[in-house]
Structure formats: structure tokens, C-alpha cells
């Protein structure tokens, strides 16, 4: 009796197997193998910074030609090159690696507070309630909307109450830039060390009253720069990174010490 059962099962297995084999050949959907390969080189965190639903969706879009080869912001140039290899195409230009930078070092001791804020611990909520507790309307509020937005754990609030980016972890996905209600986070080239760490657009006299490390638009940096890379726009100094060669002469001349390297910004904020 046992032999019949085994034979029946075996036979059924053979028939279904053959059917499946035929079906898979006959009804096969042509899929581009490059999708899987591209997907494999993407970071896989599904951060959404590219504008697609996730890494799977972006891989399909890249292969379909709907997204650029360097569309993955988080992956940066390394991923873009790998994607280009798979696609057999060349990148027109080699993009520079960017990182986010919080352009404020006005911690609790340096910036004046005009009131006490108690309520929902969110920068955006604080801005809605009377534009935040700091006198400076361009200062980091330190409630961490950017920290919650970062998918890579690359931004933190220093003990002094100012957000600081960990450049090693930052992928320049731009989520913190969008989350900051003050708009004081910018993406800057990772290779550059000299930055203006303030965005205060008030006149110098007003800025001076608000914060000890605020740009007073004195133009000392503009005069110091041998490359003509710094200009003062809207009462705040701005570096043109395409001209800047990181000589730091501007930082040496700045009377309020608001032009400095990334390292200094971390130290200043942490103090």
C-alpha cells in the first residue's frame, strides 16, 4: 500500500513541476537585471531624499531612465559612480561630496534670550509661538527638529543647545535642511574647512545686542580674502566655495570669530 501512495505523490510532483516550468517560460515578464544590481549598490535606508518611495523605487527609476545616475543624495559620488558603471554610462561631472552645516554657534551663553519657552519641545512649535525664545531670529533653537528628521543619526544638539552635524555620518540627504524652521542648515562641500557660522540678517548694531558670535557685516573678511571669495549680502558674510581655497585669512580677521572651521564650530557649540 505504501508504494502506491509514494508513487502517486511522486507522479503529481512531476506533473506540477513540468507545468510550472512551462508556465515560467511562457509567461515570463522581461525584467532588467540591472534593477537588482543598482538596488544592491544603493544604501538601502529608504530615506526618501531622492523623492522616490525608497531605494527599490529609485533603482527602477534609474534603470528606466527617469532618474539621474546621481539621484541618490545619501549615497553621494561613490554610489553615483557604481550606478554609472552598472548602467554603462559616464557621469558628466564628478559631484563633490557635500555635508550639512548648521550655520549658528550661538549657544546658551552667547545668545540673548528674550523669554522663556515652555511647551511642545519642537523648533517649529517654538517659532509658531512668538518666533522662539531667542532674540536672534536666525539662531538655532535646539529643540531638535533636525535630529528627528535625520535618518542617519548624523546631527545632535550640543550641551550648549545648538545643533551640530557629524560630518562622517552625514550623507547630505537634505532632510535636516527641510526640517529646520529657521532655514539655517545648508549643504556645503565636505572638502571645505572655512565657513561663516551665522545667518543673522539684522544690521550689525542689532546683531551685536543679540549675540556675541553673530556676523556684524563689518566687511573685514571681504578685505582679507585674497581670492575675492567672500561677499556680504543682506548683512551677513557669504563664502563662494568655488573660489575659496581654505586659506582661513578671513577667519583670522573676523572680530566676532564667526568664521571658522567645522572643528571649531563643534567645539564652540559644545562649550
Amino acid at each position: 500500500m505504501l508504494i502506491y501512495a509514494i508513487a502517486t505523490m511522486g507522479l503529481m510532483g512531476l506533473i506540477f513541476g513540468a507545468l510550472l516550468a512551462v508556465a515560467s517560460k511562457k509567461f515570463a515578464v522581461a525584467s532588467d537585471e540591472r534593477v537588482g544590481k543598482v538596488r544592491a549598490v544603493l544604501p538601502g535606508v529608504n530615506c526618501g531624499a531622492c523623492g522616490y518611495a525608497g531605494c527599490d523605487a529609485l533603482a527602477e527609476a534609474i534603470v528606466a531612465g527617469k532618474a539621474a545616475l546621481d539621484a541618490c543624495k545619501a549615497g553621494g559620488p561613490r554610489v553615483a559612480e557604481k550606478v554609472a558603471d552598472i548602467m554603462g554610462a559616464k557621469l558628466d561631472k564628478h559631484p563633490e561630496r557635500m555635508v550639512a552645516l548648521v550655520k549658528c554657534v550661538g549657544n546658551k551663553d552667547k545668545t540673548k534670550y528674550r523669554g522663556e519657552y515652555s511647551g511642545v519641545p519642537s523648533c517649529r512649535a517654538a517659532v509658531m509661538a512668538g518666533n522662539g525664545p531667542k532674540d536672534c531670529l536666525y539662531g538655532c533653537l535646539g529643540f531638535g527638529d533636525c535630529v528627528r528628521a535625520c535618518p542617519f543619526d548624523a546631527i545632535h544638539i550640543s550641551p550648549g543647545g545648538v545643533a551640530v552635524v557629524d560630518a562622517d555620518k552625514c550623507t547630505a540627504c537634505g532632510k535636516c535642511v527641510a526640517a529646520c524652521p529657521r532655514g539655517i542648515i545648508e549643504l556645503v562641500p565636505a572638502s571645505h574647512k572655512v565657513h561663516v557660522l551665522c545667518m543673522n540678517q539684522e544690521k550689525g548694531v542689532v546683531t551685536r545686542k543679540q549675540c556675541t558670535v553673530g556676523c556684524i557685516a563689518c566687511q573685514a573678511c571681504v578685505r582679507a580674502c585674497p581670492k575675492g571669495a567672500i561677499s556680504v549680502q543682506n548683512n551677513v558674510a557669504k563664502i563662494d566655495y568655488s573660489k575659496c581655497d581654505d586659506c582661513a585669512l578671513c577667519a583670522a580677521k573676523c572680530p566676532v570669530k564667526v568664521i571658522s572651521g567645522r572643528k571649531e564650530s563643534v567645539e564652540a557649540a559644545a562649550s
Partner: peptide, 13 residues
């Protein structure tokens, strides 16, 4: 809990 402020934040977003 500052509920109204939370709701205002939600509405704003």
C-alpha cells in the same frame, strides 16, 4: 500636555 499647541503644530504642518 500642551494639547492645543500640538494640534496647532499639526494644523500648521
Amino acid at each position: 500636555i500642551p494639547l492645543v499647541q500640538w494640534i496647532r503644530l499639526g494644523k500648521n504642518e
